[in-house]
Design a protein around this nucleic acid. Structure first.
Lengths: 194, 194, 194, 194
DNA sequence: GATGAATGAGGGTTCATTCAT
DNA sequence: TATGAATGAACCCTCATTCAT
């Protein structure tokens, strides 16, 4: 029990170190030795938990992605109205991206570079299903524009990644009003105009 | 003269090779030797044109960014109406991102990773001035939402980067209709609702 | 008792695994962890039975060498005539080398590389005493050439190692006729010509 | 010219270092760094001349093997009688094995371990053709025993490897008389008895 | 200006061995 | 006795950069 816990702790420490270092330096500029040092283990120990560097990053990605989507949909129920549902999910996502900054940055970097291998990327995508279903419902009800999910995503969800990045970089600080403005823009871009 | 041209050719070949290789492999997985080989030059020759690898990428970034903004604003005139001006600029940007795919991908990768150093990034940003001025005019005229330029950018321009990436990745192919839908979303997200 | 047997079993399993793995990969390409796995033991357990990797291989060598010479001389009696005695021993050796292929290969690899340390090598050699004595008798009786035992060994016994290796490698398959031809060559090379 | 020569010198130094170190320590116990140091180059330089460690050893093997067979057959002419031809080749081989000790040891180690890859081994074998042809002629003329070349080789040529190894190890020193005795044994083992 | 050979520093990974349990 | 987790040292190899030509 104590032993198992220690193992889990080490694995978590490694994942945490990976996120922080990759965020600051990028995948290839992050040596295994530094990850090990930050996680307070020997470099060789990493290989007890992960097959190699690629596997370490893949697993980190999948884990963080799951955390992200779990958070996003935690309080959502498909009995909600389309607008209420979207509002809820959107705000949860915004919350995650702006508060769990490290994790969200990591996901953004993974999604924008050839860092993660294809299987892991696909693994990460399928978690967004509830949002896709909500949109489908919204299209049927004539509330959401009848256009590709990719475009809906690009305009309603993805901008949060950009805002997170510039906030992380220190260029811009989002307060509650900004969030509300952003939500209005997101909703405007996908809702059917009356 | 012929000599100067040969020099320029080499520099261009190096920049082109850098873009292609960094797009496909990322910054750190792109060795100078490969860049040299693809540009048909000796590795040592790179150092006649650039100080080091970081400088090569920085300069490439600045150059491509300039090309991008030049294209974006080439036909824009500040005598246009706000809506016409935005429509024009947006479509030029869309054009560039979806047709000059390699260049746009490179910019996206630079903007989403700690690959470019701060001074070069700032250098790249300032070219967007005309758009910022257009938005300022739009806000005065009550046509554009009175919110931060960062949010305006996040919702009206940045989504194109996302669409470009997934198109490059082969997940989605944008035709003219999609572009029009995207534009409607972009415009909806920043225009003042009547 | 049962406990002692279990210990012996483990030791034997380790020795067997060592032989097989070293045969196929060589000494340095055989990790202790693989030996442990093949013997169904923990890596740490090896160190209960052997001091270190070198000791494991040394002991394996000595053990297999003893098995080899035991087999070679099992039915030999020094009352036999020189020719009968040599014929018997030679065929026993041939038998061992061609049938107990794994063991013989292991010995050959040890004898041809700097894998075994000197003391163990000497330990292994002294078991050939009966053959040396037979030759001494043969020389006295004028049946065996009066030349160095090293040369006698090189021409009458060592060739079997070569034949074993190429058979193991699949280049050549020895049947009964080949064995007889080989024996004739061996005997011709050391007997005094009439 | 001077440059080319320097390249060749380096390559030769690397091959020489490889032979010496592999002889003394075996393939896997010979680090590239030591080879580099002995050849007075940086470890990285090795990779300008060889693809990797395996390639370095393969090429060394092929080169030494060629040297060996070149020497063996240098003065042989197929107009010689079978016995004269064999005597000549045998003595040339003996010469090489006992005087070019380092090279011969290296070949022996390569031939007795899974150190060289299959293609290189085959490359090395084909050089023995003249000896095979001599034996064919000898069989036709009824001078050489009508048995497999593998057995002829095992008894007439291979014993020299054994004698070389024990001489290298310091156990036994061969003088002219020993060589002559060895030759007699070799010839006795393959010639047809009258 | 242009090069290809050369390299030191460092990266990912493996492995013989140890130690707490 | 037996273990599996842990590790430091070392290995092979790569690469940004330099230098003699």
């Amino acid at each position: 029990m104590a032993k198992l816990q220690k193992s889990i702790d080490k694995r978590n420490a490694l994942i945490k170190a990976t996120i922080e270092l990759v965020n600051n330096n990028g995948f290839h500029a992050t040596p295994m030795s530094k990850i090990a040092k930050m996680a307070n283990v020997s470099p060789a120990t990493i290989y007890l938990y992960f097959e190699n560097k690629q596997d370490l990053v893949n697993q980190t990605y999948i884990e963080v992605k799951a955390e992200y989507t779990d958070y996003a949909f935690a309080t959502y129920k498909d009995t909600m109205s389309v607008e209420d549902g979207f509002k809820l999910i959107w705000h949860r996502i915004a919350d995650f991206k702006l508060k769990e900054c490290e994790n969200a940055m990591f996901l953004a970097q993974c999604d924008n570079t050839p860092m993660i291998d294809e299987p892991s990327r696909l693994e990460g995508i399928k978690h967004l299903q509830p949002l896709v279903e909500l949109w489908a419902r919204g299209k049927t009800e004539g509330i959401i524009k009848p256009i590709s999910d990719y475009i809906l995503y690009a305009y309603s969800i993805n901008p949060l990644s950009f805002l997170m990045i510039i906030q992380k970089r220190g260029d811009f600080q989002l307060d509650k009003t900004h969030i509300e403005e952003a939500y209005q823009s997101a909703w405007s871009s996908i809702k059917v105009c009356n």
